[in-house]
Computed example of a mutant assay.
Amino acid sequence: MNVELLGISSDQLEPVDSGYPENFENFDILFELDLCFENHQADSVHFEFYVASPKAMSCRPINCFSPPTLVIEEFDWDIIKSQVSKLLNHANASKSWVEVATRLSGQIRPVSLSCFPWS
């Protein structure tokens, strides 16, 4: 099944789905993706990732793991959406959210584990 992007937002921006950071060249913002399998909008799942500038990345701690991050030179919604669309293509033909999460691990991560069937 193909993965469909229903929405992209950040509680750190105002408005959450179209706002901009105070500094276009120094930002480190957590984003949330609302995803579903094609034609299954009612069963959407949320994933998250950071979008950061190179300048902000240099301020992150060293000698530690870093969260999944898209690094872009200047803040631009079109670039973010384009990169997310390209990324989601790598998960097309997945049969479950576990498979989506596995294919896209390192780039985005599930917000909740509720979509995973643990037994």
Rank of each mutant, 00 (worst) to 15 (best):
I29G: 00
I29H: 04
I29R: 00
I29L: 14
L30M: 12
L30S: 02
F31L: 09
F31I: 03
F31T: 01
E32G: 04
L33S: 06
L33P: 09
L33M: 11
L35H: 06
L35F: 04
C36P: 02
F37S: 06
F37V: 10
F37D: 04
F37L: 04
E38P: 01
Q41P: 07
Q41D: 14
A42D: 14
D43W: 09
D43S: 12
S44K: 05
S44E: 06
V45D: 01
H46G: 02
H46P: 04
H46D: 13
H46M: 15
F47E: 05
F47S: 02
F47Q: 03
F47N: 05
E48Y: 07
E48S: 10
E48D: 07
F49H: 03
F49T: 04
F49E: 05
F49S: 01
F49M: 15
Y50K: 10
Y50G: 00
Y50L: 10
Y50D: 01
Y50V: 03
V51E: 00
V51P: 00
V51N: 00
A52K: 03
A52F: 03
A52P: 02
S53L: 07
P54I: 10
P54F: 02
K55W: 00
K55I: 09
K55G: 00
A56K: 12
A56H: 10
M57F: 01
M57W: 04
M57A: 04
S58D: 15
S58H: 12
S58V: 05
S58A: 15
C59P: 00
C59R: 13
R60I: 02
P61K: 15
P61C: 06
P61A: 14
P61S: 11
I62V: 14
N63P: 02
N63Q: 15
C64S: 11
C64H: 06
F65C: 06
F65M: 13
S66Y: 09
S66P: 00
S66A: 13
P67W: 01
P67Y: 06
P67C: 06
P67M: 04
P68Q: 07
T69P: 08
L70R: 03
L70I: 06
L70C: 04
V71L: 08
V71W: 01
I72S: 09
I72R: 04
I72K: 05
E73D: 14
E74W: 01
E74L: 08
F75H: 07
F75Y: 11
D76M: 02
D76A: 10
D76E: 14
D76I: 07
D76N: 13
D76P: 07
W77G: 08
W77Y: 12
D78A: 12
D78C: 06
D78F: 10
D78K: 10
I79Q: 11
I80M: 04
I80P: 06
I80D: 03
K81I: 11
S82P: 00
Q83S: 12
Q83C: 08
Q83F: 01
Q83K: 14
Q83N: 13
V84F: 05
S85F: 05
S85E: 12
L87P: 01
L87C: 08
L87I: 11
L88C: 08
N89K: 15
H90S: 12
H90N: 13
H90G: 00
A91S: 05
A91K: 01
A91I: 08
A91G: 13
N92L: 04
A93F: 14
